[in-house]
C-alpha cells in the first residue's frame, strides 16, 4: 500500500489560537516569567499537538516536527565537543537563517540530542514515528572549520558522532533514521565521501536508514546516490519534476519517498495531479516501495497552509490506494 510521511519540520506556531502558544511561552521564558519546567511542558504539548495533527490528517509515518530545532544543524552542534553554534547565515535559497557550526577542536559526541523529543512524539501515537538527523556532508559544507581544516576529516568526524546519535535513536525505537543531505546535490565531487560517511553512520544498525535530498538538484549524482548503503531515498519531484523520470528510469533498490508536494510554496496542489504522479511511481515500483511526502519540511509554510497541504497529500494517497484496491477486487 502507498503510504504518506512528512519530511521533518512542522510549523510550531499558528495564526489561529492554539492550546499552547509556544512563541509566547518562549518570550515569557526569556523574561523569566515562566520556569524551565513550564517551558518544557509547552514543548511537549506542542509535540503532542503536532503528532495529533498528522494523525488526524491521515499521515502514516510521523515526525516530531523538530519543534526545538532552531535549524537543521544546531541541535547536533550543541551536543558536540569541539563545535559551537556561530553567527546567522542564510539557509540555502530560503529567506530564513541558520547558525553555522564553528568547529574549534576534535568533534566528540557528548550524548543524545534528539532522543527525548523522539520519545515524546512516539509516546503520543500508535503510528510509527521516524527520526531525522542532518547529514555529514551538509554539516561540513555549512560549518566553519577552524580545527581540522580538512573537509573529509570533518565530515568523517561528524559521521562518527551521528552514528552514536543513530544508535541512541534505534534504542528509542525509531523504525527509520532519515539523514538529511540538502547540500549533497551541489557537491558531486564529494559523493564517494558521502557514501563512506553513510556507511559509518549506518554501521551495525538494524533499523532502516534513509537519505533525504532537497533544495539542490540530484540528477548529476543520481547514479551514485541510488547505490548508497541505505534502504530509503527521498527525492524532490515537486520543485524539480524532471527528477520523477530520473527515479523511475533508474530506481534504487529500496523504498523511495517522492517529495511530490511543494513545501516552499503556498499554492495548494490538486489532488488528481498528485495522484497521477504517485500512480506513475506505484506502477513502476509497486505501492509498498513508494511514499508520498512534501519535498521539504513544512515549516516553510504558515500553519494553516501546512495543514491543508498535509490533508491534501493524504487525500491523494487515499485516492491512489482506493483505485488500486478497486483494481485488485475486480
Amino acid at each position: 500500500m502507498l503510504r504518506s510521511t512528512l519530511a521533518g519540520s512542522y510549523p510550531r506556531v499558528s495564526d489561529a489560537p492554539l492550546p499552547v502558544n509556544l512563541r509566547q511561552m518562549l518570550h515569557k521564558h526569556d523574561r523569566r516569567e515562566i520556569s524551565d519546567a513550564e517551558l518544557e511542558h509547552a514543548y511537549e504539548a506542542t509535540i503532542t499537538r503536532i503528532v495529533n495533527e498528522q494523525e488526524s490528517a491521515g499521515i502514516d509515518l510521523l515526525t516530531d516536527g523538530q519543534i526545538r530545532w532552531d535549524d537543521l544543524l544546531t541541535p547536533i552542534t550543541r551536543q558536540l565537543d569541539g563545535a559551537k553554534p556561530g553567527g546567522l547565515l542564510r539557509y540555502f535559497d530560503n529567506n530564513v537563517y541558520y547558525r553555522h557550526p564553528v568547529i574549534q577542536g576534535p568533534i566528540r559526541w557528548r550524548g543524545p540530542a534528539t532522543v527525548d523529543d523522539y520519545r515524546t512524539a512516539a509516546g503520543a501515537t500508535r503510528r510509527p514515528v521516524k527520526a531525522v538527523l542532518p547529514g555529514p556532508i551538509t554539516y561540513a559544507v555549512l560549518a566553519e572549520d577552524r580545527a581540522y581544516k580538512n573537509f573529509e576529516m570533518l565530515a568523517r568526524a561528524v559521521s562518527e558522532a551521528l552514528h552514536q546519535e543513530a544508535l541512541a535513536l534505534q534504542e528509542a525505537g525509531a523504525p527509520l533514521i532519515q539523514i538529511d543531505e540538502p547540500a549533497l546535490g551541489g557537491q558531486p565531487a564529494r559523493l564517494a565521501l558521502a557514501r563512506a560517511c553513510m556507511e559509518t553512520i549506518a554501521r551495525g544498525l538494524k533499523t532502516k536508514v534513509g537519505i533525504a535530498t532537497y533544495f539542490k538538484p540530484v540528477q548529476e549524482i543520481w547514479t551514485g546516490l541510488r547505490a548508497f548503503p541505505v534502504q530509503v531515498w527521498q527525492v524532490d519531484v515537486a520543485d524539480r519534476p524532471a527528477q520523477l523520470d530520473m527515479v523511475l528510469n533508474a530506481p534504487p533498490d529500496g523504498e523511495v519517498v517522492f517529495g511530490c508536494m511543494d513545501a516552499r510554496n503556498t499554492r495548494l496542489e490538486e489532488r488528481d495531479t498528485l495522484a497521477r504522479t504517485l500512480e506513475r511511481a506505484t506502477d513502476r515500483l509497486g505501492a509498498d516501495r513508494v511514499w508520498a511526502s512534501p519535498n521539504a519540511g513544512l515549516e516553510f509554510l504558515p500553519h494553516a497552509t501546512a495543514q491543508k497541504k498535509m490533508a491534501r497529500l493524504a487525500e491523494a494517497v487515499g485516492a491512489v490506494n482506493g483505485r488500486t484496491a478497486g483494481t485488485a477486487a475486480r
Binding site: 506556531v13 499558528s14 532552531d70 515549516e299 516553510f300 509554510l301 504558515p302
Partner: peptide
C-alpha cells in the same frame, strides 16, 4: 501576505 512563517529561532 501569508500567515506567520519562521525566520529564525523564535522570530516570525
Amino acid at each position: 501576505i501569508s500567515g506567520l512563517v519562521r525566520s529564525y529561532g523564535n522570530r516570525y
